[in-house]
Design a protein around this nucleic acid. Structure first.
Lengths: 212, 212
DNA sequence: TAACGAACTGGCACTCGGTGGCAGTTGGCA
DNA sequence: TGCCAACTGCCACCGAGTGCCAGTTCGTTA
């Protein structure tokens, strides 16, 4: 559920290693043989983890498939308390924090992230699960903001809109990032961060989009 | 998959009636006994439809649960070609079209819609399925707009942002609409339309939300 | 260092959502 | 009237996910 840490008790490190092994086996397998064709049973077999433990480590098959991307949001959620003490336009604060988290992902994060992103684009069930995590992020932000500016009417909606724009900009950036055929080997996080920044910067002018 | 119509061949009307019977049985049952406790098998039993046919009529259990709300989006999608010939700010065009569709839902739509909305708030899997339909809507709009203003850079993202804002405003409105305890019996679509309009009007100023 | 208890694990059987296949039925139409 | 295509029901099956429980493992306290 959380990012694997290199620290902690022996037990928790074993768990982290099992989780990691599952991700390492799963994502390439999904990409090569198709998401549906790769069963949880088979994955457990490969990673030498019992099916029962699989569902202790991950909320489900989709959660596994989205681990790299979800880690970003989950990290961001974990840091929200600190992030929301900053001052300035909320969209900017949240956007900067998001880019910052991406920049700090562990080395080697890119490859699985690309596979994960592609999967979420092609496979609706995976995409939906991804949206749920973003939704949790939005909810957290909304709660915190409402609590902070307490009572001001419309705060609720404003915070929600800011979050969805952030999420949308992120999605657009990730889509562009993972679509080149060689992205799995060559995509860099610097590039992704630039794309996210560009999307975020372009988003506000969207409201002026006019037909004819 | 589509809204039941009173017209058409005898066969298609039977299908529509079966679908409707399933929805009528399901939504109150979900509300009373809980989403998980009500199995597809039981529903099929009640509505006298074979399980096989159930999955011909609905994309899944969540699709059934979301029928009233999804009908709105599906109708809107079906009308997109016509809607996008209008001129003016895209956000306004799409928002107006959405309200228009809600206003034209069949009589008696409110009750199941409220139950459906509540379900989508409490049950993540249902909520996720709802987002997928909205995502399809967004994709359609984006494709159409890109096609229309062809090539202009950033159009893609702008259209996507406009759609997410519309969806977010709609969600916020529906949330508020279905939350009073007596909503199932007393909520009116006029009220919902007013809420949607209010959310849409308030959305643009969200970008100015600033901390401290 | 030994022993205890909490946290974790594996294995199994089970439920339920969803699908494939196919033979039988039904309704539209010439 | 009778044919064909579309639709239906049924059954067996698959895979995701859970409940249960006995066994193991590790951190702690004596």
């Amino acid at each position: 559920m959380t990012t694997p840490t290199a620290t902690g008790t022996l037990r928790s490190r074993r768990i982290a290693r099992s989780r990691q092994r599952l991700v390492q086996v799963a994502l390439p397998a999904f990409a090569e043989r198709g998401y549906d064709a790769v069963t949880v049973d088979w994955l457990c077999d490969q990673a030498e983890v019992s099916k029962r433990s699989f569902f202790r480590y991950f909320a489900g098959k989709e959660d596994l498939a989205l681990t790299p991307l979800n880690d970003v949001w989950r990290t961001l959620i974990a840091e929200l308390d600190e992030v929301l003490t900053r001052r300035g336009p909320l969209l900017e604060i949240v956007g900067d924090a998001l880019v910052d988290v991406v920049e700090r992902m562990p080395p080697g994060w890119e490859r699985p992230a690309v596979l994960s992103a592609r999967l979420s684009g092609t496979h609706p069930a995976v995409g939906a699960a991804g949206m749920l995590v973003c939704e949790r992020f939005t909810q957290q932000v909304v709660d915190a903001i409402v609590d902070r500016l307490d009572g001001a009417p419309g705060t609720d909606l404003s915070a929600r809109v800011v979050c969805t724009i952030t999420v949308t900009a992120h999605r657009a950036a990730v889509d562009a990032w993972c679509s080149p055929p060689d992205a799995a080997t060559s995509a860099s996080r610097t590039e992704l961060c630039a794309l996210i920044r560009a999307s975020l910067a372009a988003a506000p002018s969207a409201l002026e989009l006019t037909l004819d």
